[in-house]
Simulated assay, not measured.
Amino acid sequence: MFKSLVRKTTPLIAFGVGLAAFPKEWRKGQFSDRKLLVINDSVLDQIKSTDTFKTLLANPDLKHYNSSNKFPDQHHHNYVNTGLLFGPDMMEIDPIVFIDEKKGELTSFYHLGDKLISQDGQIHNGIVSTILDEGLCSAGFPLLPSKKGVTARLSIDFKNQAPPRSTVVLHAKVKDAKGRKVVIEGYLETLPLNKDEKPLLIAESKCVLVEPKWFKYFSWLQV
């Protein structure tokens, strides 16, 4: 009985200790105002000039933000898109996100530099996997009871490899939401920058997002 109690309480205690050690700004959700993180202004201008972007921007039902605004400054170095892989010839713009939180529909834009390639000279599939995981989960979070969860399963069907220096767009949509479980499907493709160009499908994905039972005790936490 004692061992069972230890197994059940240790994760909760460890989480509480870790939370207490977090910066005050994280615990209170008081993120500082900051400018958009951009290294390649020309890419940002190209994205904003596309019909896809203009249509999303004109939709009043969509919330519009940049990925870095979801994390406090002190944790940026641990975040992939605007930290670990952000820089010249890597992730050169702060990913742009449009989301309908009620429907669980999300569209986000990225730019992949040529330092993110694998041995074959194309964008590494690990980068694509990370984008899909984070993007699909972001679409599903608002439909969970506490708006927080973890990836229980992620499946990816790679269709083509993304070329270096490509601008890509992620489309994600919640297919089923029941209680503490949300199923999201999505795909990643290149973004055509002119009307004569066709998108290249890079990968399709399905994610099962779940909210652990003990998350409800930390519903006040802004993450």
Rank of each mutant, 00 (worst) to 15 (best):
N194A: 06
D94C: 05
A152Q: 11
D114P: 02
G135Y: 06
G104E: 02
K24N: 11
I93M: 03
A172S: 10
A21D: 08
L132S: 06
F31V: 10
N66G: 02
T151I: 12
L144C: 05
S138Q: 10
Q30I: 13
W214N: 03
V80K: 02
I123C: 00
K173I: 09
K54M: 11
F158E: 01
R153G: 07
F86P: 00
L116F: 08
G179E: 07
C207M: 12
Y217G: 01
V169G: 00
N194P: 02
Q46D: 14
W214P: 00
T151D: 02
C137Y: 03
K24L: 12
K28M: 04
S67K: 02
F98R: 03
Q122Y: 11
K63I: 07
L36K: 12
A203I: 12
I99W: 00
K8H: 05
E189K: 07
E185P: 01
S68D: 06
Q222V: 15
P163D: 10
Y110T: 03
L191M: 07
K178R: 10
T190V: 09
D51C: 01
V17S: 05
T130I: 14
F86Q: 00
V17H: 06
G140P: 00
E134P: 01
G16D: 10
A152V: 08
A177L: 04
S67Q: 09
L191F: 07
C207A: 07
L57A: 14
T50A: 04
G186L: 09
I47A: 03
D45H: 08
H75V: 15
F215D: 03
E92Y: 05
L19Q: 08
L5H: 11
D33C: 03
K159L: 13
S42F: 07
L201V: 12
V128D: 01
S4I: 15
D196H: 10
I123T: 02
V223Q: 04
F2H: 09
K35E: 14
L209A: 03
R7W: 09
D196A: 12
I93Y: 01
K63V: 07
D73P: 01
N66L: 06
L85I: 09
L221F: 14
I117N: 03
F22M: 15
K148H: 09
L106C: 05
P23C: 04
E134A: 13
F22A: 15
K103T: 14
G83W: 07
L112S: 01
F141H: 06
D133C: 10
I127V: 15
L132D: 05
E101Y: 04
C137L: 08
K3Q: 14
L188T: 11
E185F: 05
K195Y: 04
A172H: 01
N66D: 02
L19W: 15
V43I: 15
K178T: 09
L106H: 03
R34G: 07
D73G: 02
M91F: 15
I127W: 00
H77Q: 11
